[in-house]
Design a protein around this nucleic acid. Structure first.
Length: 417
DNA sequence: CTAGGGTTAG
């Protein structure tokens, strides 16, 4: 019997996360005399699967070694990725080094690079990247995605320079998606001129290309350049093929670009443009709402901001997504909710935060409690805020004022202690 | 039968 039906079934079970059944089938397959091959068990090396299996991926690794034959590339890559996902970089490296074939496979480099990058092992990342280019291996989108966590880190300017030199020296032939990634990297670290050079050199420009470049200008407040590119984009629309036309009309409705624009208009206080851009968007994301609410908020239109907040909730979007920005944005929203007297909602918002609340967030809540005389929440907020600033006398005064306004003498005495 | 993994907005 051939192994194809077995493998197909194994893969099907693995896809449905029925790992124990897959294991049973795997054993049955061996009893029937079929030799499992590389296609039979990479699924077992996936971290999600290993958690459900009665043996660890490492044990399976031992089994592979015991079998005597050198593992096939699929297995090697699976092993590397498995060890990386469990942050066992030493083991991942061992697999890479012990199997010379890894040295010639982009996939193996990709797996190891992303493992090092996620653990901020910068020197390893750059060494591996250089090595794979010296080997003449193709760098692809997946390689770049692995590199991004390290290259976008604000502190690594020298690394980015050496990365850039590396690319130039070796004459890296940039394919479309790799170029997009490098462009993004330049934009993220504010190297806007390098970004523009690359942008101009790119023979093909896609949605992400235009987007990254225009939003790069928007982020740096270069409104004139935004307009210039906009016009260029429209120009590119004429006389080009249908595909390009669709791409560039998609750009105008593109949430990434529009959100960047809302933020730019908000920063320069053009609330009319903010509103128009926002209203023109067919689909509004959490980022769009955050941008417009923040825009009205910082320019003194707290009431409109709170109304928009309600509208957002009504439309089914909640501010607890994993991608909601840092604590500063929360304190802005909290100030708005707090001043409007909606303290319970403010508290709920804090509880839903994915980022760790800082002192300012709790301080804002405490301040709002003073205005709206809410002792209960004030006690809660106070308890948190002094964890951050135990020596700040202002908070003690604030709490005792809240107590005294509520004619709670006991509380006042407690604070004085 | 196929490993590495999905970029841009805040």
């Amino acid at each position: 019997m051939t192994w194809i039906p077995w493998n197909t079934q194994l893969r099907e079970l693995a896809k449905q996360c029925q790992y124990l059944q897959a294991l049973t089938l795997y054993r049955q397959m061996m009893r029937c005399g079929s030799t499992p091959n590389a296609f039979s068990f990479p699924f077992a090396l996936k971290p999600s699967a290993s958690l459900h299996l009665p043996f660890s991926g490492q044990q399976l690794h031992c089994q592979v070694i015991k079998s005597g034959c050198s593992p096939e590339p699929f297995v090697i890559t699976s092993l590397i990725s498995m060890y990386c996902k469990f942050n066992s970089l030493v083991n991942a490296r061992k697999v890479f080094d012990e199997n010379p074939i890894s040295n010639q496979l982009t996939v193996c480099y990709n797996a190891l690079i992303s493992g090092y990058a996620l653990n901020s092992r910068v020197s390893y990342v750059i060494a591996l990247f250089c090595r794979m280019m010296e080997m003449g291996l193709p760098v692809n989108l997946v390689t770049m995605l692995g590199l991004i966590p390290v290259l976008s880190e604000p502190g690594y300017i020298s690394l980015r320079m050496s990365f850039h030199c590396c690319c130039v020296k070796l004459g890296l032939n940039l394919d479309f998606s790799v170029a997009n990634c490098i462009l993004t990297m330049y934009v993220k670290c504010g190297a806007i001129e390098l970004a523009r050079n690359l942008f101009d050199e790119m023979p093909k420009k896609g949605l992400i290309t235009w987007n990254a470049m225009i939003s790069g200008y928007a982020q740096n407040g270069l409104a004139a350049n935004v307009l210039e590119l906009y016009k260029k984009m429209e120009g590119a629309d004429v006389g080009r093929d249908v595909e390009q036309r669709i791409e560039s009309s998609g750009l105008r409705l593109n949430p990434f670009l529009n959100n960047a624009l809302i933020n730019m208009y908000a920063r320069c206080g053009n609330l009319v443009k903010v509103r128009a851009t926002f209203d023109g968007m067919p689909v509004k994301t959490l980022v769009s709402w955050t941008a417009i609410i923040g825009g009205y908020g910082i320019h003194g239109y707290g009431e409109i901001a709170v109304e928009l907040f309600d509208e957002m909730i009504k439309s089914g979007i909640r501010p607890n997504g994993a991608k909601f920005p840092g604590p500063e944005n929360y304190s802005c929203m909290l100030n708005l909710l707090g001043r409007a007297g909606r303290l319970n909602e403010a508290l709920e918002l804090i509880k839903s935060m994915q980022v760790k609340p800082d002192g300012a967030v709790w301080g804002a809540l405490l301040g709002a409690c003073k205005i709206h005389r809410n002792v209960e929440i004030a006690e809660l907020a106070f308890e948190q805020v002094i964890k951050f600033e135990p020596m700040n006398i202002g908070y003690y005064v604030l709490l005792s004022n809240i107590y005294s306004e509520a004619e709670n003498l006991e509380g006042v005495l407690k604070v004085l202690e």
